[in-house]
Amino acid sequence: MSATDFPRAEGRRFWEGWRHTIGGHRGLLIAIAIFAVMFAVYGWKQPVGLTSNIINTAANKGVLLALVAMAQTVPVLTGGLDLSVGMVFVFTNCLAASVVVGGGVQTAAGIVAVLAAGSTCGLINGLIVVYGRLQPIIATLATGAIYFGIALILRPDPGGSVDPDFADFMTRSTWGIPSSIILVIAVVVLIWIPYRRSVLGRAAYAIGSSEQAAYMSGVPIARAKVLAYVLSGVLAAIGGILLTCITYSGEARAALGGDYTLNSIAAVVIGGTSLFGGAGSAIGSIFGAFVMRTVGDLLFVFDMDPLWQPLFVGVVLLLAVSTGSLRLLRIRNKLDLYR
């Protein structure tokens, strides 16, 4: 090999690195692309253009689901599922409508209390799944009902209040950007990225990818799983606080929790996270959530009956999921199809 070959070989290796980086985020990139196309069409067709009011409303709606979808992502990455995210979201909404009041220090203390409540819900889920050895789907179905029950006791009728300064700040624009978008970016930067780059975050991916291999490698499986559910509870609680700011009240409505749970799973899948675990990211789920929410807006600007919305959401979901099954074309032993 002559000396001049080196830069070329280095260059090839550099591009190979990029190819792998892009390949590893295929699902995320597809979700971003789908969202970009949908939002461009929406902005173009929108009769009054994209005013800050319209953007704010769209952002708030999208971010609510985005936070719950992020909460769903973490257990899904470990190969689990959290059917209680929607109920934690509702429960923390009810709690926040009682404690995030009074202004200043008191409001801050209320926020901390709500986050602590959310993480406790997650901790209970995690402990049951890891040490009770129950399947996540049934464990969280049960705990979700319990969390909703507590929400009902807290707030039998819709009502309550929230610190109005805090609520206004959260639902308006800051520096020309909707505050809720800033919130979601902050969550990504302060919670998701550090988690993704921690040993236990890495462990969550390893467990979802192959729990056996993770165990053989000496990965701390129990701790990583419990943390995944705790994180899920915290993220759902952040969503619950934002909901309180938007509605100025708390409401224990079962349909709301159920809706958010199911939509969060759909958003996770559209965002490129595998329901088998091991691959994907919470950032993809954010875009997945925005795709889900934009479908409704698109129907509106095209003057279509809102009754069509569920159908279209279903079609988008199917299309997004189908890209994942392309890998089946590579299988060489038919028995692997059923594993």
Partner: peptide, 25 residues
């Protein structure tokens, strides 16, 4: 094999004791 298939080669090699900077991998 004790490798997690969905992680990168580098992730797998230092799966339990990755190098850290400011507490992050």
């Amino acid at each position: 094999l004790s490798l997690a298939p969905d992680l990168t080669v580098a992730d797998n090699i230092s799966i339990t004791n990755p190098p850290k900077k400011l507490g992050l991998i």
